[in-house]
Amino acid sequence: MSSRDVILNRVRRALVGGPDGAPDLDAAVDRSYLVEHGARSVEETVDLLAENLADYRAIVHRTDLDGLAELLARLLAERGARSVVVPPGLPSGWLEGADPVRVHDLEASTAQDLDAVDSVVTGCAVAVAETGTLVLDGSPDQGRRRITLVPDHHICVVRVPDQVVSSVPQALRRLDPARPLTWISGPSATSDIELDRVEGVHGPRTLEVVLVTGSPEGHGC
């Protein structure tokens, strides 16, 4: 007998006397918990996102679409970045005027190649206000998971308000489980020394978030 059968038989014996027939998840779970916490206007939701991002040490900037390229150029310059990874589908205008060398993420690029790059600029799939979370889903404006992991400086552009939701339940409804998802809430951190939070371990130690208004495409949601 295979171990699969062994385990499933053990499960069935353990459950003798339990409910028969097909499971009915909806009947079993009372989902009377809240879909979002508190009533907020759209502006207030965006403000809450900014507040919670900052609370976990992300650096938050705001601009409109016309000022985006200039802001990104300035942030990269202030960081002293010499090179920046560009996801394949990043809107072409975003890095207009930025000085650093553009590094395109190629299939053949190794992790070591990425380790030599200073910064990365991406879009996002959805942002969660209540928790201060950005979710990346590997869409062309975000690229492969590794490009937002190895460089030490990540600038993530969020189109507000259309990419912003209030809560975790709302975020999950917008996301496709088939895509590789990365939820990011502030820069890399640890609580492993005396259970006290310290920022900066293996992921990008600086996370900058640009909340941009006036998005023309309503992309990603």
Partner: peptide, 8 residues
């Protein structure tokens, strides 16, 4: 409120 990274 949320841990820094969740991978799915």
């Amino acid at each position: 409120r949320m841990n820094p990274y969740t991978s799915m």
